[in-house]
Design a protein around this nucleic acid. Structure first.
Lengths: 234, 234
DNA sequence: ATATCCATTTTGTGTAGACTTTAAGTTTTT
DNA sequence: AAAAACTTAAAGTCTACACAAAATGGATAT
């Protein structure tokens, strides 16, 4: 099917199963034949069928339960996968020239809202960095970030004048858990100034909280330039 | 490790490998031992190692190339996975009572912008539906959708007075390709009215184009209520 | 120096078979 | 009835082995 080979591959099976779902041969809620039977039909081993079905389940098309069998999901709970690239990569991928500029960097006491937001045990020192990312010298993103000193002590020696805090963190604390939120916010004086948009302009915004093994590391607000769209296909 | 079993499972291997990456034993760009060697180390078969490493690669931690081997990715290209639920499910999941209300439904000629946007060969008839989704009787989402008649002829007989067009489409055309974009837009007169927010309020907005085997089926703009956040963890 | 070819290594995927784990359904007991 | 115990079907995972496919790095030819 996919290759002009003599054996049936798990990819062939995936394709065939998808086709049957598409064409309505196997409608939502249908209980599919078990792996044994499918292996017989496709004249391959159960191992191969298993891989095909397992992947289709992971992709959100099927639901599998031991003893109960495999059925077609009625409302495809399809998952959108956004790849979150480094901003430099994102800009360069669309052919722009990336430029970074530090706005400010200072060590301060964490404000109350941040203490609450990160569920810090007590008030902590944080490095507060603000910076800009440009594509072809037009504003692309304004970044406003706090990094918890206790979690990443090296941050006090870090130099953010040429390297952005995100890239620095990726190098320094490569392995993290993330909570990411997208929302629409309103450009205040500061954001409007940096992004070169009118005040009160709607701004696509991402909030990103990062932990390292349960320890909150950083809170970032990323304000995108006017007209930014975050896109995916599936 | 995970189970108190006597065999090494692919999950154990995944965990161990992740730990080594976390702890810096295997730093970014490190070339890992090949599957043979790992199988020996974990005293299991190469098949088991293969599954562990394959999944870690899929999850964005490793890069694998034939002959070149497996290496740790420097900037974890981790992917955010958003599950896009039916809006009814989303509302009910957070404990709200879902209510749907049709605003308008009419068959019209596709406006030019839509013809261009969907790359229609010629101007087509479309069903234009506008409707509201409420959570506990507060506005949650305003939906403005066009459905291409030629692609889904049954739509002209559809009754959207009690069933939302999205749910109808999921039932009728279960299998589709989707392009999804998120952006921040500004509430115009209409949107502001329906969402009960001031004019010019920033509104988190999703645009969704759906195809069925290459045929454009529907274009939808989904305006979310004030303060909506789309969240994910990874 | 440059381009082409080729051997070898490493991952990718298949077969065949066994044992394990979960949970649906049935039967039995309370 | 309701709860507990049992049976059993289905997916989940492992072993052991084989061959395929890709692509690197060196060897060879231009």
């Amino acid at each position: 099917m996919s290759q002009s080979s003599d054996t049936t591959s798990y990819k062939d099976i995936k394709q065939t199963v998808l086709d049957r779902i598409r064409s309505g041969v196997w409608k939502p809620d249908t209980l599919l034949p078990n792996e044994q039977a499918l292996a017989l039909e496709f004249s391959c081993t159960r191992t191969t069928v298993n891989r095909a079905m397992r992947e289709l389940a992971e992709e959100g098309f099927l639901e599998r339960r031991r003893k109960a069998g495999t059925r077609v999901l009625r409302a495809p709970h399809r998952q959108a996968r956004f790849t979150i690239p480094l901003i430099r990569d994102e800009i360069e991928a669309q052919g722009g020239a990336y430029r970074y500029a530090l706005v400010s960097a200072e060590t301060v006491d964490a404000p109350e809202w941040l203490t609450a937001r990160l569920a810090l045990k007590q008030a902590q020192r944080v490095v507060h960095v603000r910076c800009m990312h440009y594509s072809n010298n037009t504003p692309f993103q304004f970044e406003d970030r706090c990094i918890v000193v206790q979690s990443v002590p090296q941050v006090e020696q870090a130099d953010f004048s040429t390297l952005g805090p995100n890239e620095w963190l990726v190098e320094t604390v490569p392995f993290t858990n993330v909570e990411l939120a997208f929302l629409a916010s309103r450009a205040d004086e500061v954001v409007a100034g940096f992004l070169d948009v009118p005040r009160d302009e709607p701004v696509f915004t991402a909030e990103r909280i990062t932990w390292l093994q349960g320890q909150p590391v950083t809170f970032a607000k990323l304000y995108f330039a006017a007209g930014y769209r975050m896109t995916t296909r599936f």
